[in-house]
């Protein structure tokens, strides 16, 4: 067994960043602050959603975690070790966004090579590769060159590649990108299973419904700093919305109701008024004055997508 494989099981946080800052030097003396004192602490055996708009610093964070980039100040710690300790990466599986692999390789060859890079001997490597392919349902494609596989199947190969070597931490950048609903479901189930087996999953995704259903903890970042971090329930806040369905309304009535910061929508012959629950009294009073017939009333909790738009837009 190699040095890499004899690393002790970690007791510390899989990922912790302390005031992580990254400044890119651009041409003509300009600078861009990609990360600004980013602090995150990823709990063990949890699915951690890492959200943020484009350019918020998600990829930069991942690249620093994997030592592709160096922080300008602050530090990132993986399982209690600095990111430049390459041996710690024996505990990590990584799926880059839109993964690209040597197109001439067959999935089994690619995964065996990655298993060898993880320190396994050839026989171990091949069985580890097959096991990873089995987990993502790709055994039947094991001997087909990657260049002949579709984007979705290549994505599954990428996920299998990340799973090689039973990592304790999976860093996945848009793992379900390009997958059909069946593939997405399979990967969702797989991630839950891995989490239940004690693996920590660091998930960067733009599919907020997926993050909402899957993640135990979510951090939203904006301009390189954490805006909020907590369970999806905590992030969605206590904001509950009221949805009132009426018949069609005139534009005059619509204007009169604007003072409540309403979201007014037309759908299947109904007009739908959406506002925060605290505005219910004013809304019903205004509707009574305008003599609007109420067809249905619903309450709706803020979705993660709405929370994300509120926090990160």
């Amino acid at each position: 067994m190699s040095d890499n494989q004899t690393l002790e099981m970690p007791l510390t946080s899989p990922i912790r960043t302390e005031d992580l800052t990254k400044v890119y030097r651009l041409p003509r003396g300009r600078v861009k602050k990609a990360l600004n004192s980013l602090n995150i602490d990823v709990p063990d055996a949890a699915i951690f959603g890492f959200l943020g708009p484009n350019g918020a610093g998600k990829t930069t964070t991942i690249k620093i975690l994997l030592d592709f980039l160096r922080p300008t100040s602050g530090r990132a710690i993986l399982f209690g070790k600095p990111t430049d300790d390459y041996k710690v990466r024996n505990l990590i599986g990584y799926l880059p966004e839109q993964p690209y692999f040597h197109p001439f390789l067959k999935p089994l060859e690619l995964l065996s090579a990655h298993a060898a890079l993880a320190g396994m001997d050839p026989t171990q490597a091949e069985s580890a590769a097959m096991a990873a392919l089995e987990k993502v349902g790709m055994v039947e494609y094991a001997q087909i060159p990657i260049r002949k596989l579709s984007k979705g199947l290549t994505q599954l190969i990428g996920i299998a590649q990340a799973l090689v070597g039973h990592p304790r931490l999976l860093i996945l950048d848009e793992p379900t990108s390009g997958l059909d609903p069946i593939g997405r479901r399979r990967i969702r189930d797989l991630l839950v299973q891995l989490r239940n087996e004690g693996c920590t999953i660091f998930l960067s995704s733009h599919l907020l419904s997926e993050v909402e259903n899957l993640c135990d903890v979510v951090a939203v970042i904006k301009n390189g700093s954490v805006v909020t971090c907590g369970t999806p329930d905590q992030i969605r806040s206590a904001n509950t919305y009221l949805k009132v369905y009426t018949g069609p309304i005139t534009s005059e009535d619509r204007n009169r109701l604007q003072f409540l910061s309403l979201h007014i929508d037309q759908q299947a012959g109904h007009t739908i008024f959406k506002t925060e629950l605290k505005n219910a009294y004013e809304l019903f009073r205004a509707m009574e004055q305008l003599n609007l017939q109420i067809a249905r009333v619903e309450t709706e909790r803020e979705s993660l997508e709405e929370a994300f738009l509120r926090l990160a837009a």
Partner: peptide, 15 residues
């Protein structure tokens, strides 16, 4: 350029 380097360097290997 092809980004094949990333999964490789994410493995426990030194530069």
């Amino acid at each position: 350029e092809n980004r094949t380097i990333y999964p490789i360097l994410a493995r426990p290997i030194a530069r």
